[in-house]
């Protein structure tokens, strides 16, 4: 299936001409997530005429602009609701949403919750950089306790949102979180999420050196990536330690962010159930009509 071999060939195939340069800063993680998505799409060999992207507002939401495909760049927080409509117009479309922590977990939280609950067949890729980057570094709902932001100048005192745990609780069919510093697992997870019928969420921890790193002593990319290594733990390892580990080991990992695949199930998606509903109505109506004859 794979036609292209190098990143250059990949970009030529998937990027939209005429949109360069990007708005992204040096060291930004968004381009990395975009490239992982391209590799996943390339491996799946999907028809890009039938694959479309929706996004809200923020740095991550600019990604559809750089993709050579239909893209709907909408209002802040609402991309998932727009995407629900696109999918409804033709359930054969592949619908992918790019969103950020502020867009998805902040202003758009309610749309996220209900699309996951309805199990709408779409893939949401949420890029979490712990900050409102585009507007200049305000506090995000996913920011770790103590984070410095322009609107949390003395350190964040709000508990951060774990969007993967939320999606899991809502019964989303596929939920995974990875830092961008691991290339292979993200590509594999994106592929699995895209292929999944029903709702899938992929959360990526991605650096924002300009708005987050600068204020939180994570100035360059190396430091960001080291932070991910030090502060994340594979779900399987976490579970093992919590079950069998010593008090000290448990204490060490209890505040780490878990990474990996949180959920992988096969609940019927909304449009599958809607099709069944339409079919049932047809059968009932035909019976009624025959009964009248």
């Amino acid at each position: 299936m794979v036609e292209v071999k190098t990143a250059e060939e990949l970009n030529k195939k998937f990027l939209r001409e005429g949109m360069w340069p990007t708005i992204f800063c040096n060291g930004c993680g968004h381009g990395v997530v975009l490239e992982y998505t391209f590799w996943a799409l390339e491996e799946l060999g999907w028809d890009m005429d039938k694959t479309m992207f929706a996004s809200g507002i923020g740095c991550s939401s600019r990604l559809p602009g750089y993709i050579n495909a239909d893209g709907l760049h909408t209002t802040h927080g609402r991309a998932i609701a727009f995407a629900t409509g696109i999918k409804a117009a033709d359930p054969d479309f592949n619908v992918i949403v790019f969103t950020g922590d502020g867009d998805c977990a902040g202003i758009g939280g309610n749309h996220f919750i209900h699309a996951a609950r309805r199990n709408i067949d779409m893939t949401v890729i949420m890029i979490n950089n712990f900050i409102y980057g585009m507007t200049g570094g305000q506090l995000a709902p996913t920011a770790p306790l103590g984070s410095i932001a322009t609107t949390a100048p003395y350190g964040n005192i709000e508990h951060p949102f774990d969007i993967c745990e939320l999606a899991k609780a809502l019964g989303a069919n596929y939920v995974a979180r990875w830092p961008v510093s691991h290339p292979y697992q993200p590509i594999k997870s994106i592929k699995e999420g895209l292929q999944k019928k029903g709702f899938s969420l992929l959360e990526f921890l991605a650096p924002c050196p300009t708005a987050y790193g600068r204020r939180n002593k994570l100035g360059d990319i190396k430091k960001h990536w080291a932070w991910y290594d030090d502060n994340t733990i594979l779900i399987e390892d976490y579970d093992k330690i919590m079950k069998y580990g010593s008090v000290k080991e448990k204490e060490e990992v209890k505040d780490k962010m878990q990474i990996g695949v949180f959920q992988d199930i096969q609940k019927p998606g909304f449009f599958e159930l809607y099709d069944q509903l339409m079919e049932r109505l047809k059968v009932e109506e035909n019976k009624k009509r025959e009964g009248k004859k």
Partner: peptide, 9 residues
């Protein structure tokens, strides 16, 4: 939002 999305679809 969904109505607008559907229109584009």
């Amino acid at each position: 939002a969904a109505v607008i999305g559907a229109a584009w679809g």
